[in-house]
Write a protein that binds this DNA or RNA. Structure first.
Lengths: 215, 215
DNA sequence: TCGGTAAGCTGACGGCATGACAGGACAAGT
DNA sequence: ACTTGTCCTGTCATGCCGTCAGCTTACCGA
C-alpha cells in the first residue's frame, strides 16, 4: 500500500535514511507546537535535527510537504475515532453515555494533536485540497457514523424526517473540532473543562436524537 | 480613542501618508484572499500597492502587525452582530425566526471576511493573545447576548438549571464560526447551503431553549 | 579481503526577502 | 523663494531558500 519511501530525487530510502527522515518529521512537529506556523523555517528544523537544510530537501519538497506527511500519519491514527460512535446506542441512559464518550474522545484526540491540526485546518480553509482531504479523512470517520445513526433514528420515526442527517452530523462534528482547537481559549475566558464537556454532550445528544438526554 | 496614526519611527502620518497606509492594508487584504498566509511576502504587497518594501516597514513592524490592524477594523465592524440576538425573543415562532436570522447573519459576516478571519483563528489557536483578544471581541458580542438569553430562560424555569449558560453559548458560537469557515468544504462534500442553514438554526434553538422549534 | 555501487550527507552558491538608514522629493505655510 | 516637516525610495548587510556537485558511508557479491 504505502510502497517504498523515496527521496525527492528518486532514490529508495534505507534504514538510516528513514531514521533521518523521521527525525526531521519529529523535530518539525515539535517546532509547530512551539512557534507560529509562519515562522517555522527549514533551517531551524534541520539544525534541531542535527543535520543540514540540504538533507531536509532530500526528503521533502518544502515545509508544507513535510507537514502533509505528519498530518497523513495522524489521520490514519484518527480513524479509530469511528469506534466512538459505531455500534453505540442513542437510546435512554446509554445514549447519554455515547454522547459523553464521543465528546471525551474527540477532545482528547484534538488536544493530543493540536499543533498539526490547526495547520491542517488553515490549509483546508485556504482551499488546499490536500489538506482538505486529510481533514475529511479524520472527520468523516465520525461524521459518517453519526449520519448513519441519525438516518437509523429517522427510519424508526424517532427523529423528524426533514432533518438533513449529513448536515446535522457535519455541524456537530465541526462544533467539536472548533471547541477542541480553542480549548485553552475557553479556559482563559472563564469556562471550565468540567462545564464544557457536559454541555457539548448535551448538544450532541439534542442534535442527534432531538431530545433531552435521560441521565 | 484611536488617537493619531503614527509611523513606526514615531512621526504622525498626514493625509497622503494615511492614504498610502490604507492602500497597503487593502492590498494585503487582497493577497490574503488569494494566496496562503504563509506565502504572503512584504515585497508582493508593496509591489501591488505600487510602492516599495521600505514604505511598508514605515507603517507596520511586519506582516503580522498589519494583519492585526485589518483584524481590529473588522472586529469593530463585527460588533453589529450583537443586534442579531439582543432584544430578540426565543419563544414560539419568533424564537425560530431569531435562530434563523442569527445563523444567516453570522454566516454572511464570516463569508465576507473569511480570509482575515482564518488568520485570526490561527493566531488565536497558536496562543497569540493579541489575536485571541480580537477573536473574543467578535464572538463575545454574540456569546454574551446568548448567555444572557439562556440565563433569562433559566430564571423563568424554562431551561434546566444545570446548563452552564456560558459554555452553551460559547459552544454554539464556536460551531457557527467553524461551519462558516468551512462553508466551501461542506459544499464540496455534498451538503448544500440550503440544508445547512436550517440545521444550524435547529441546533441553536435546541441549545438555547432545550426544545424543538415551532415553525 | 576488496572493489563496486548506491545511499546518505553537506559545503557552497545564486537568488530573493528582510529590515534599517540616510537622503532626496514633495506639500504647505511664511 | 525659503523653511519645515512629511513622505518615499535606493541601497546595503544579513539571513533563509532551494539546488548541485561531490564527498563519505554502508552494503554486497566475488
Amino acid at each position: 500500500m504505502t510502497g517504498q519511501v523515496r527521496t525527492v530525487d528518486g532514490r529508495v530510502a534505507g534504514r538510516r535514511g528513514q531514521a533521518t527522515r523521521q527525525k526531521l518529521l519529529d523535530c518539525l512537529s515539535e517546532m509547530l507546537s512551539s512557534s507560529p506556523y509562519r515562522d517555522v523555517k527549514v533551517i531551524d528544523v534541520a539544525r534541531k535535527a542535527g543535520t543540514s537544510p540540504a538533507t531536509f530537501y532530500q526528503y521533502f519538497p518544502d515545509v508544507e510537504g513535510a507537514v502533509l506527511e505528519i498530518a497523513e500519519e495522524m489521520a490514519s491514527e484518527g480513524a479509530r475515532l469511528t469506534a466512538l460512535v459505531e455500534g453505540r446506542s442513542w437510546i435512554g441512559k446509554s445514549g447519554w453515555q455515547t454522547a459523553e464518550e464521543l465528546v471525551e474522545g474527540f477532545l482528547d484526540f484534538w488536544r493530543a494533536n493540536d499543533a498539526i491540526l490547526r495547520v491542517v485546518d488553515l490549509g483546508a480553509a485556504e482551499g488546499d485540497k490536500r489538506f482538505y482531504k486529510i481533514r475529511m479523512k479524520i472527520l468523516n470517520s465520525v461524521t459518517n457514523s453519526l449520519t448513519e445513526s441519525v438516518k437509523e433514528l429517522q427510519s424508526k420515526g424517532k427523529v423528524d424526517k426533514d432533518v438533513s442527517a449529513a448536515a446535522m452530523a457535519g455541524s456537530l462534528v465541526a462544533m467539536l473540532a472548533a471547541v477542541s482547537s480553542h480549548q485553552k481559549g475557553f479556559q482563559t475566558w472563564g469556562v471550565k473543562q468540567a462545564e464544557l464537556k457536559p454541555n457539548l454532550a448535551l448538544l450532541v445528544h439534542l442534535g442527534i436524537t432531538g431530545k433531552k438526554p435521560t441521565k
